[in-house]
Every structure is written in structure tokens, then in C-alpha cells.
Write a protein that binds this DNA or RNA. Structure first.
Lengths: 125, 125, 125, 125
DNA sequence: GTGGTCTAGACCACT
DNA sequence: GTGGTCTAGACCACA
């Protein structure tokens, strides 16, 4: 389904979350389609079922999937996902912090700005 | 000198580092000016001296300050600070990850982009 | 006959039970009228026959239906259904817990109360 | 600090959550006051630290506490807790379901309504 | 088979 | 000391 980056600083369960969010937002996991079971995915990624469980639970909390004990975990309609303003604010802080870090490295405002724009444009493709 | 956000998930020592970097890069702490002693700052911020120590060590490692044994810690010349390409790459990853997170929340590419631009513009002032 | 909410966290068999109870208590399923067979209903709802079986067993245990071997399952006389005091106590606990949850969310006693009243009034119609 | 009801149908971590919410909303845990550490509380309640952790995490998610790794978990200002509309809707469903259950037991609309009102009035004291 | 909860015990970074 | 993550393995109810 996807691969984990064991060298990443991101925790495993966060990587699982982000990968599945991407699959849902890109439509690979269509609305209502069943996600792999907790055990299946944990076996597939050779991680502990509890770690997958944690990711699935968080995905449900954020409205990306719904779970039904005994039946499985399913993708929600991505068009119904409503952004959480508190989460947006958090991410804004992260971006601001990263942007400042660039300037702290000795880059000018313009240089730092260009790097950010470049990263975003790259993502567009 | 500055304030810490105790409710933030950023670690204390990182907050100290970022604040001092800001003071140096904005010229508030001019080249050669003495930073508060570890004890002084830890008392001022009501945090553990070890935490300040750790921040100072990291600032020295990154070339923002130098310590003269027995005399104290001093700000380096900000114009001599050279960006570390590996660090830039790391920050780029952080920015990309944050940008994707915005999109995962249900925002369109344009909406996410606008948020980032806005954050940066705000910082300019 | 009725529909299930597959996204609900209520278990399927509980939903089946509640729906049938409703049909009996509202008189749609009059005394003595035959319920759909396990196979029929499971096909109709596209759920596992075991799940329907379990619901029917529970309905019988609670005195809402009776089964005649080889003939089927039939609705009991709703006027003969006597409230079980222990069950009432259980439900009272559920209501109290839900009410507290409303207050924990930051609602005042009055606000929480109004919500409950509203839910009940809505049900009257 | 509080006691768990091991005979309850509620899961342990949910009981921990509800108990702490109550302590915060009643002001026993004032804004900024430190909660017992994960290990401390787990020892106190003779449950596993992971279970307490789960409860603390959920409490943070809902805005009742904030946590800082290495420092501890602290109560938020209860006046700043904003109700989550989705959660309210969920609880409304629970109340409606419980109310219907009362009627399914053979109680009239008025009888069921009186029970609910009584439960709420009792809570007022 | 499914998800949900729990225990036991470990390791990590931060204070 | 603190919280955060992860593994291993167990038991439960539900489908």
C-alpha cells in the first residue's frame, strides 16, 4: 500500500496517517472503500497492530475514515471533510517557525521566501 | 528578555534557541555583546538551568554564539553566519509536510498556498 | 422494512433490535403479525444472518417477539410488555452520563437541559 | 484522586476522562494546576500507564488539559473550553436513543419524559 | 474475520 | 522526574 521511512523524524503512526490521508485526498481510496484491516496493515508494514490502531483512530477523529467494530475501517467522502480551524492555526505556526529558521540560517527575507515558494510550486505538479 | 509559551508543544530549549537567534539576527544582540548567564536567564524564565545550558551549547554548535570560559557567552557576527545546506533541506521538508497537511485538512491547493503566503507576508512587517 | 446506519458506532444487531422494537411499539407490527424470516431480513439489509438471528434472540428474551419452531417469529402484544426496573435504571445512568458529557463540553446546566428537552420534544412529533 | 468502577460498562480510560473532566469543570483542578503524572495516576488507580496516557491524550485533544513532555500535564482554563458541535450531535443521538429505549420498555411518552426530567433535576443539586 | 481495550515492559527526548 | 512512542501479546464483543 505504501512504505514507511524508518529514517524519518516523524513517528511511525504519523507517517501512516499522512500516507492514508494522501490516498484518500487523491482519490486512490474512494469514498466507502475498505481500508486494510489493522492486523493486515501492521503485518504489511511490519509494525505493531497497536500503532496502526492509533493511526486509524486519529484518522477517524479527523473525519477521514469511519470504523465499525467487527466490520472494518472505511474511507469517508473527502468532499465532506471540513478543515479544523485550530489545526490550521497550528500549521500556520509551524510554517512561520520554519520560515524564521530559514532566516536564522543567514538567509535574507527574499531568499527565504523564494525557497518556500519553490517548495510549494514543486508540490503543485 | 523574552517570553516562553509554556502551552506550546515546542520544547523549552528550542524556544530559547529560536528567541536568541531572533535577537541576534535582528541585531538586538549585536556582535560581541554578552548574553545573560545561564543562571540569570534560567532564573528570569523560571526554567531549569540545564535547559538554558543545552540551548547555549546548541547555539554555539550552530555558530551563533561563542563562549569564553569564565567570562560568559557572546553573540557572533551575524554576517559571518553561513547557511548550512543540509539544514535548509530539512526545513524544506518541514515546509512541504506542513503544506501537505493544509491540503489534507480539505483545503484546495490555492487555499493552502494563500495561507502560506499570508503567513510569510505577515512576518515581513 | 427499515434502514441501517452503517457509519454509526451502534452495533448492527442493536440497530435491528431498536428498529423492530419501534415497529412493534408503534403498532406497525401488530400483535401476532409475522416478522420477516432471518434469511429474508438479512438479505434485505445485506447483513449476516447470524446478526439477525442474534437480534431476534434478544427480542425474544426481552419479550417483544415469540418464535414458533418451524413457523417463524411473531410480534407479542405490546400492551403486555412490562418495563424492567433494572433496565430503566441502566437507561437512567446512560442519560445522566450523556447529560454530564454535555456539561463537560462547556455548556451550562441550562444549555444542556434545553438540548435534552429539545431532543425529547422533537421525538414527540 | 478518584476511584474507578470496575463493574461499569464504561471502559477504564473513559472513566478516567470523565472523572478528570468533572474535576476541571467543578474547579477542583484549577487552571494551570498540574495533574498527577501518567505513572503516578496509573499506580494510584492500579492500571497500566498506557491507559492513563490514552485518557490524557484525549483530554488534551478536547481542550481540557495541555501537556508538555518532560514537564507534565496541566489543566486548561475551563472558561476557554469551546463545545464541539459534532460531539453535541453525537450526545443528542445518545439521548434520543435512550429516550426511545424507555418507550420501548412499555413506558408512555409522558412517563419516559418524566424520568428524563427527574434525572436532570437530580443532577442540578 | 473485524476493531477496541488493556497489560507489561521497553526506549527516547526533554526538564 | 516528565510525556511520547512502540512492541508483544492477550481478551472481548461484533459480523
Amino acid at each position: 500500500m505504501f512504505q514507511l521511512d524508518m529514517t524519518s523524524h516523524k513517528s511511525i503512526y504519523e507517517q501512516v496517517i499522512d500516507n492514508i490521508k494522501e490516498l484518500i485526498m487523491t482519490g486512490v481510496l474512494a469514498q466507502g472503500s475498505k481500508l486494510p484491516s489493522v492486523r493486515e496493515l501492521s503485518k504489511d508494514l511490519t509494525i505493531n497492530p497497536n500503532t496502526v490502531q492509533k493511526a486509524y483512530r486519529e484518522l477517524e477523529r479527523e473525519g477521514f475514515v469511519y470504523t465499525a467494530a467487527g466490520r472494518g475501517t472505511f474511507a469517508c467522502d473527502k468532499s465532506k471533510i471540513r478543515p479544523d480551524p485550530r489545526r490550521i492555526e497550528e500549521i500556520e505556526k509551524e510554517i512561520l517557525s520554519a520560515f524564521k529558521s530559514l532566516q536564522y540560517l543567514g538567509l535574507s527575507y527574499e531568499e527565504a521566501r523564494n525557497i518556500v515558494i519553490e517548495v510549494i510550486e514543486e508540490e503543485k505538479k
